[in-house]
Design a protein around this nucleic acid. Sequence first.
DNA 1: TCATGATCGAGAACAGTGTTCTTGTCAAGT
DNA 2: ACTTGACAAGAACACTGTTCTCGATCATGA
Lengths: 234, 234
Amino acid sequence: MSAPRSARDRVRQELTREILDVARAHLARDGAGALSLRSVARQLEMAPSALYRYFSSRDDLLSALILDAYESLADCAEEAADAAAEHHDDLAGRWSAVPRSMRAWALDHPHEWGLVFGSPVPGYQAPQATVVPYARLAAAVVSPVVAAQRHGRLRQPPVPERPDTLAASIRPVAEELLPGLPTATVARALQTWATLIGIISLEVFGHWRNTVLEPSALFDQTVADLGRDLGLDR
Amino acid sequence: MSAPRSARDRVRQELTREILDVARAHLARDGAGALSLRSVARQLEMAPSALYRYFSSRDDLLSALILDAYESLADCAEEAADAAAEHHDDLAGRWSAVPRSMRAWALDHPHEWGLVFGSPVPGYQAPQATVVPYARLAAAVVSPVVAAQRHGRLRQPPVPERPDTLAASIRPVAEELLPGLPTATVARALQTWATLIGIISLEVFGHWRNTVLEPSALFDQTVADLGRDLGLDR
DNA sequence: TCATGATCGAGAACAGTGTTCTTGTCAAGT
DNA sequence: ACTTGACAAGAACACTGTTCTCGATCATGA
């Protein structure tokens, strides 16, 4: 796929990228609902039918953009995680780096954020392809937690006592994302995930209007509280 | 608006309601993107142009449905709050009633939930009309908290110490929704709001696939934790 | 080298959409 | 009784996604 053997393959790959770039620009400006196959064809100065050599339908093009958004967000989060991983001592700072990068990305790409975490648009997006960047994103968020646990700096929750049904319900994420951590911590991590997605979505989708005047102050405070709730205080 | 003086006004009001009912059914089945003015006209056996006597555009019809969704959700939450208000002793049960009703409503009306808390669809929905049910919903959620404070059963947060920028940022909600409560509690309430919207959206929008097997277990645990974090433990 | 087969771009066409305008009809108010 | 207004319908316009056909172009095997 990334090895153009012939000249034809190379120009095809190039044009595919060009179509995606134009479509991404339209998406960023007008949103997913306004993404028109004919309008990107017009801007590329080609016939609408010609686009069908590269994408089998409008939904197919949109699915490619959705996958792009997932990967762009995951890249952004992983970069922030890697950059923050160098400061071993500042646990709070390391913890807050990835959430802040997610918020910054969302504010920079509101429509793409909507594609990832907003209401699902078509019948369905490609699920098998988005699970990989989704897992990368989640792993980047919790990477400071697993690092803290490895270094014995993660405070254990007092008296877990969680019902077994909860433990069974979240076993997949406990095993694949946070192995060796108590159920209470895994549950807290999922709550943290919900809080992050919720607080960013509320801001990006305009729900803080006349309610929260400076969203960044609330966001920073929230991230700090979440880290403390997770047991990251030393 | 609700006082039909002439027979003509009455039949007009009736037909308006009929259009909304059909459109709401289409919305519930196929989502907002698939809502077609012509298809509701077909089902009503009238010409597409006739609908323009009742709604000035497709966006206008959709805006009415959005407002409907806001009000339906707020009604549901207020009913749950009123029903739970009778049990003065069971503070935890009273606290969890409204969040549970919100989740149930969201699972029953996934597309409508998307209209309220998902990515905003058109240029913009009517903002001035939705702020009222939005405030009713928020008030229903926090009603057990203000009741607990009135009865001296709200644990105060230990050592507030929140930055002034945060206090200034969330002053509107502190004054209008939670008067007399410390900044730390108001901030926690906003975090709770974000967590609720986030955890319900993640489930309704299908993000728990293969991750959280029994969302209700995680949801109940989360609501309980949120109540404790807010200071509702006696 | 050249012929064959695959790939490509363009154009026309179809069904569907939101929206506007015009025309006729019917009920209400003076 | 007549006028005025609201109403429903039909035709039309400008869009949209999608399919089909038809040359033109390129890659490759004989």
